[in-house]
Amino acid sequence: MTNKNKINLGVFIIFTLFIASSFILDISIGLKMWGNFKIFAWDMIKLLPPAFILIGLFNVWVKRETIEDNFGHSSGIEKYFWSILLAATTVGGTFVAFPVGNELYHKGAQYKSIFAYVTSASLVMIPMSIIEASILGLKFTLIRLGVSLPLVIISSVLLGNYFEGIEYKLPKQK
């Protein structure tokens, strides 16, 4: 076991012990933390298995050329369209967009596409925008989307050029 893993395990054990003792000693902060933990844990349990199955299928089926043609150097302006469209339909926001973006990178997507994808995954998701419009009003959502899209493209061009310039490499998940 590496040092990092030891620390992780230590933190996890301390957390578990604290929560367990909160139940016995009725510590309200601990019980509240458990409530928060449960909400998100349930969300992740539902979200991650189908998301990773899709990532696995993507990994074995999708050819590198396909990604290069649509998200990579052989793609012009249309790569923004594909990246934003993919993000708009990604369920689960950044939790899912992080691994998917990394996967796209290792299949030959450019940084510009990756940043356009990850940024818009938290801005233009269709399901989220519908909920937002129903609560905050359609005007709010339309202004937000209208302002977001040019910012997504500008920022991904700037960040993409920067990271290509310094020849940055994303970590590879084996």
């Binding site: 992740m44 991650l48 990773f52 696995g56 691994p99």
Partner: peptide, 23 residues
């Protein structure tokens, strides 16, 4: 594909658990 999915998932799982604790 399922093996790849499981490998990737189990590797990142500690990260997600850390997020849960922080949140």
């Amino acid at each position: 594909a399922l093996k790849v999915a499981w490998k990737k998932f189990s590797k990142i799982l500690p990260g997600y658990i850390k997020i849960l604790i922080i949140i």
